[in-house]
Every structure is written in C-alpha cells, then in structure tokens.
Amino acid sequence: MSMKEWFKERFPIDYEKFVEINENIFLKEPIPNHMKKWWYCSGAMPLILFMLQVVTGILLSFYFVPSPEMAFESVRHITEEIRMGFWVRGIHRWGSNLMVIALLLHITRVFFTNAYRKPRELNWIVGVMLFLLTLAFAFTGYSLLNNQLAYWATTVGTNMFKQVPVVGGLLLDFLRGGEDVTANTLTRFFMIHVMFLPLTMFLVIAVHIIILRVHGVSEPEGFPKGHYAFYPHHFFKIIILTLFILSVMSALTVIFPPGLGTPADPAQTPLHIKPEWYFFPSYRFLKLVPLLVGIALTTAFVLGFMFWPFIEPIISKDLKVRTKFSYFVGSLTIVFTVGLTVWEMFFA
C-alpha cells in the first residue's frame, strides 16, 4: 500500500474536489488587468509583513520574559547575546514600522480610487479596523520592551483612556490591571500582543479577503478590461515582494540596529519623551487642544474615517461632486497629518 493511499484511508476527504477548489479559489483567481501595476497591489504588502511579524514574533517569544524585572534584560539578551537575535528583533521592529507605512499607502490608494463605494462599504470599515488593530499591535509591542520610552508611553497612553466619559476609570483599570502601570500591565499587554490581537487580526483579515473575493477587486477606470489568473503572474509578484521586503528589512537591521534605550525608571520621566512616529499626529494634536476636546475630536475623526463610505453619499447625489469632495477631504487629511507629523518630528 502506498503512503498516499494509507493516508487517504485515514483522512478521507475528496481530494479531487480539494484540488478543484484550490484551483478555482487561488490558482485561477481572476485578477483584473490593472493589477499588473505595482501600485495597485498595495494590499498584499501588509499581508506579507503580517506573516513575517507572526514568524519573527513567535521566534522572539522563545526568549522574551514578560516581567518588569526581566523584560528589558531579556530583550537585551536577545539583541546582544542570542545569535541572530538582533536580526530577528530588527525584522520584527522594522516590520511593524513598514506595516504601518504599507497600510497608509494601501488606504491612500483605496481612498483616492474611491474603491470604498457601494457595494464595498463594509470592507472599507473592516480595513479601517485592521489599521486600528495594527496600531494597537504597535503600541502594545513597543511597551513590552519596558525601557523608559515604553514605560512612559504606556503610562501616558493608558492615562488618556481615563478621559473617556463615564467608563474612563474602568477602562484604565482594565488596561493596566490595577491603578498604576505594574507587572500586571506588562503581562496584560503581552497577552494582548501575542494572543488577542493576532487571533483577532487573523479573523478580520479573513473577513477582509472574503469580502474582497466575493465582490472581486474594484476596477478603476482607464484600464483595458479583462482578467488574468492569480498563478503564476500574481503569485510570483508576491514572492518577489517577500524576498525584497526581507532583504530591505535585514539591511535596515544592520544599518539601523534595534536600540534598547535605558531600562524603565518609574521615578523619572525622561526629558524628551515621544511616541513612535505614527502616533505623532494625534500626539501633536493632543498637545494643541485641551485633553478632553482632543480625545473627542480624535474619536470623531476615527469614526468619520471609518464610516466615510456612508458619510460621502449624504454630501451630494452627484457622483462627480462626491468625488471632488472626497478628494478635498482626503487631501486635507493628508496635509493635516503630515503637517502635524513633521511639526512633531523636527520642530518639537
């Protein structure tokens, strides 16, 4: 009896059917012609990066110890003493940054090609959720290092939730696992980072892709109609991207190795404390206005951003006016966020 038959007996599914489904769903997935342009494949990039984050994240968790005494020391141990440790950590760190960048590019592309419009409104909302999940990943991730920046970012970041009306105090207690930032906060963040968020992310990504597949990719105007199969053209593209992004991140790791900072000191706030760059717009904004107003406006912005596909139709019945208005709002948002980021990065 051959191995194959032996196995088939014990795992009796219809293999012909399986191959057929695989072919229909993946290999022969119709890809519209415009996606031969790299710019229109920006959705694959965050997915590749996410997978790499999963791999390097698993590797990091072999050595990371989530306790206030050991967190920093174990990251130092990984970076300085474990063979290839700086590389694994470097890829994880650069991966998080590049993932935010890739998502921003993807969102920009989708927004300015109006791909969120009926019937794809829900997928836009799911996409925005993915972006928020990524930011939550990043925030909990860099808190785990438990250096000065991490400790104070955690302290300040969680304190903001206190301002939420009515449930603020409860939320703070929930996030910190106590009134102050303690060992409980660290284990909580660790669990959120390595269990809760990855699982949620997997599910939401699945929803995102299913919705995408059932609708098909939206096709912008000005491209020849027609489709080509996922394999080999698009499949190769993904491999090339993966190889390229791994090379880039590895090189970045050598040129800009992941830093350590100084261990957390709850008794002393460093003079120059800043969050990671992708939080600069909201950080700068919160410095400009009263805290409660800032939080309210930020929440309003996020909600507006999320439900834009439903807000846009309220503006006008004319599609051209809508487009113009969306472009205007989109451009304004970019100018505003880039402006705040640059301000925080170079002039603060």
Partner: peptide, 20 residues
C-alpha cells in the same frame, strides 16, 4: 536560488533558537 534563500533564512532561525 529560492531554495538557498529559504534555507539560509531557516538556518538563521534555527541558529537563533539553539543555545550558544
């Protein structure tokens, strides 16, 4: 070339996991 690249990647990952 692709296999070598994947191999090198895996080699690094294994080295990472093995104690010095």
């Amino acid at each position: 070339a692709l296999i070598i690249a994947i191999g090198t990647f895996l080699r690094h990952a294994i080295v990472y996991l093995l104690p010095k």
